[in-house]
């Protein structure tokens, strides 16, 4: 499912091209949550930020972080597309803060970001390598990950489990796949 943020913003009568402040984030979240209310487990929701220039940390906290929490509870996946440089920087900063004080969060991107990665969030280099591996190879078993990463069985399973929990990769039919 593709959610065009501009469309939601217009429906919510939010001022464009910049989406800022907590109340705007909350309003946008409510409308988006309505749209994805009946989404199937494992389905991917793409948040398309085309024509949006800036989103600030308050908006990110109320909109994106809340959607990530929902995706973890309800089992769907989230992905961003058409994010500007500053949107990426601001999301990264909010995710860093969350990870420092609360729990680690991250989100996939459809395109390669300015951070030269396909996600935003504080992942270790070996986790980044696994994300890239899955992007290229589409799927992998634990044995593949052990061979590729040099981690042992236990470490590999733990890492893959964490990436699934973060909703950055899928686990289906004993295989890990990219989102």
């Amino acid at each position: 499912m593709i959610i065009r943020i501009v469309k939601i913003a217009k429906e919510a009568k939010a001022e464009l091209p910049d989406l800022i402040t907590r109340p705007v984030g909350r309003k946008m979240y409510e409308r988006t949550a309505e749209k994805i209310g009946n989404i199937d487990r494992d389905e991917t929701v793409i948040l398309d930020f085309d024509e949006v220039k800036v989103i600030d940390s308050s908006f990110i906290d109320e909109f994106i972080v809340t959607l990530i929490n929902d995706s973890q509870k309800k089992g769907f996946f989230l992905k961003l597309c058409n994010v500007s440089n500053i949107i990426e920087i601001n999301i990264e900063s909010v995710f860093q803060s969350h990870s420092r004080y609360n729990r680690r969060i991250a989100i996939m991107m459809d395109d390669l970001g300015n951070n030269n990665r396909y996600y935003i969030g504080p992942l270790a280099d070996f986790e980044n390598d696994i994300i890239d591996y899955l992007r290229i190879n589409r799927h992998a078993t634990i044995d593949d990950i052990v061979k590729f990463s040099g981690l042992n069985d236990e470490e590999s399973e733990k890492t893959m489990h964490e990436l699934v929990d973060l909703r950055l990769i899928r686990f289906y039919d004993n295989k890990y796949t990219n989102v």
Partner: peptide, 16 residues
């Protein structure tokens, strides 16, 4: 373009 967007973020954060 990005300097303008940077400033928009700064204005927004400080005003809030």
């Amino acid at each position: 373009e990005s300097v303008v967007d940077y400033f928009v973020t700064v204005i927004s954060e400080l005003c809030q």
